[in-house]
Design a protein around this nucleic acid. Sequence first.
DNA 1: TTGAAAGCGCTAACAA
DNA 2: TTGTTAGCGCTTTCAA
Lengths: 361, 361
Amino acid sequence: MAEAKPRSRNKAATLADVGREAGVSAMAASAVLNGARSTSRISDETRSRVLEAAQRLRYRPDETARALAYRRMNTIGIAATLLGQEPNLYFLEVFNGVLQGAAAAGQNTTVFTLSGWDDAAPRIASFCDGRIDGLILVAPMLTEDPSTWLSPHTPVVSIHSNHEIAGVVGLASDEEEGAFRAVSRLIELGHRRILHVGGPEGSTGADWRLEGYLRAHQAAGLTPPPDHLTRDAYTFDAGRRSMESWLQRHRNEELPQAVFAGSDAIALGCIDALSARGLRVPADVSVVGFDCTMLARTFHLSTVRQPLQQLGQKAVEILLARIGARKDDASDDPPRRVVLPTEIVSGTSWAPPRTVPLTIA
Amino acid sequence: MAEAKPRSRNKAATLADVGREAGVSAMAASAVLNGARSTSRISDETRSRVLEAAQRLRYRPDETARALAYRRMNTIGIAATLLGQEPNLYFLEVFNGVLQGAAAAGQNTTVFTLSGWDDAAPRIASFCDGRIDGLILVAPMLTEDPSTWLSPHTPVVSIHSNHEIAGVVGLASDEEEGAFRAVSRLIELGHRRILHVGGPEGSTGADWRLEGYLRAHQAAGLTPPPDHLTRDAYTFDAGRRSMESWLQRHRNEELPQAVFAGSDAIALGCIDALSARGLRVPADVSVVGFDCTMLARTFHLSTVRQPLQQLGQKAVEILLARIGARKDDASDDPPRRVVLPTEIVSGTSWAPPRTVPLTIA
DNA sequence: TTGAAAGCGCTAACAA
DNA sequence: TTGTTAGCGCTTTCAA
């Protein structure tokens, strides 16, 4: 019978094993190895025997079992759409903030990816019991009312949601104000013909940025020139395409003095399209981005900083507070909405306008 | 006694609750709701009653409990260092691949962040029992031998490890060959004075790229000019700094005809430094990057594509195979090392050298 | 076709 | 100071 291997070979040591090895009960082992509050204290004799046995058996606590007994996974979830697309710098920064916040609080983070927000409901619902203690939704573009399928037992925080979700704390940054300040700055610099190459329809963020653009004109007693407004995806390529086709459509008209882009990637795309025509930034045209992602930092773009990492960290903070507060079912109403300020970043892509206007070739 | 709230208010419904509500046993409910293989079949009557009760009670299976009984978390872990630094495009792409692979296989992904590889041992060890079924290590720069603390019960796959790890499948791409081909291409174009602005000491990847640079020269019967080699971090800023200070050190000497950069970010940094001196790429200097991250794709850099997403997907694939195979303890030895090919991407940043060499101002 | 019993590994009451 | 007992919610033999 050469086959007769010990059965336990493939199994990790349990607390019971450790106890047996040390000649004490599993409880004693538990009390020693994991700081149980129930048992007051353990004799030094027992403690050292247990520690030794644990070492010998290479014992590691089974976090799953612990979670089941303890009713706490020490894990938060984060759900976002990012599959199959170009890597999303926006998400990456928020995600980084979440990871930092979670790590600082001793929590793990599990990531749920969605292919889109349409089929999200059942999937998100299935995340919400057992394996995570709370969930962060990044930029959910939800159409139906989530309160029908959200688990009442799992607190949820959303970042940059497209509208309020009942029972969910919404985190956002003040994009309208940021856009307002950026465009106001352009106006102060002397720009009057400011083209807005905006983000996609259906993105609330893009809508707010447009609002800010309009309000800045209004506040200065100006009206944006006609047809100085385009909208497309948030990407570099979309920015380049939008800029180039706009220029073609407006051939022989005056070149805009400045471009207010809906994102950093769009801004760089616009710069690329302008450069391809021999136009210089900022000497001939000023360009302002939005978000202050790594791209903007790298290329010293003038932009509006969204505190993306802080958004992530703050989300964790609020979520953990809610998870902690969940124990007593007195649900002291959390703030419905938290808005963090944005900030102008003055890079090298804006300057006062040319004294002599240019005409589009 | 107005305080007398129902105790169950804050608890999610369990299988037992569903069974009770439906007037059947918890087993029956289990068999209906989760595809249990044990019980052959359930009467339609029972089935519909259970489904109805589950709906009414908004039952959701507790994945933790299920994992405990089932001994499978359906979750893989990924560990990497990325905290506090500039967002890491390299990691992001690998991570994307992992997420895709995991999602395709119905697995969740939990992320463990390390502040560095020095303190990694105990932290990684603690990941490895219970909450994940397998672990992916991204670019582990480990100094001590991990076999002492790696759990024998959790399969591990590493991507771009700095050296082999016993019992761990190592995934990598053929960076040396990629570097060799890129530099050979520069040589074919006619370049002879090729500066290598490499990645950091201690990065095996950076070492391989340097190897490829040297081998390409050797294969062409050439010797790199003296002092045409610098090493620093993988970043844009490091690239710019390295390039600028190299140019200052070599004032009044001949300008290199081409730059082979250790990463895309370095390459863009070099381009920035060159542009700042009025030098044009590729007319005056050709520049080649490495990795083909989003940055390179955006700016049409000539570069060496590492299949980062595939690396992530492949890692999941191998990991899941090992997790599945773990059941029977016949450990049919897995491949120790899997190497994926790299590929030259011909962008707009290289061209034949100038006919008249330039001198560094 | 269904139910009862045992156990996954751990923790928390309570007794000894 | 320690061990006993009873779960956490689910799954899976094994009887009925």
